[in-house]
């Protein structure tokens, strides 16, 4: 058992109602597992902000584990998390300015 600190940005903060949250993780759990836990914790509105309900695909955004940047669409979501990691979920936007 361990804990990661999750930092949220932009509209993900609105959906979660907070800027950061500590999430417990088990040995060997990955970014993918963490996303699942966040969706369960914060509900449908949060889930709809990171995953397109029509296609079921994750929106493109960067996930930072410490300083390492991992793409939600082409990065390794099986990246294993470690106790004490800080994970930042940046703004999911598939287009813009």
């Amino acid at each position: 058992m361990g804990k990661v600190k999750v930092k949220l940005f932009a509209h993900l903060r609105q959906a979660a109602g907070m800027k950061e949250v500590d999430i417990e993780i088990n040995e060997g759990e990955t970014i993918k597992d963490l996303i699942g836990k966040l969706s369960r914790r914060f509900g449908k509105d949060f889930e709809d902000r990171i995953r397109d309900p029509l296609t079921g695909s994750l929106a493109p955004f960067l996930i930072m584990v410490g300083q390492e940047e991992i793409s939600s669409v082409k990065g390794n979501l099986n990246h294993k998390l470690r106790d004490g990691d800080t994970v930042s979920l940046l703004e999911p936007v598939g287009g813009g300015w």
């Binding site: 940005f9 509209h11 960067l62 703004e91 999911p92 936007v93 813009g96």
Partner: peptide, 24 residues
């Protein structure tokens, strides 16, 4: 349905990206 055009932009508009830029 798209998280960007259906959620992010309607909620915060383009200013939503400010903290993301800084975090990077």
């Amino acid at each position: 349905a798209n998280p960007g055009t259906g959620k992010a932009l309607p909620t915060l508009g383009t200013p939503g990206v400010t903290t993301t830029q800084n975090q990077l």
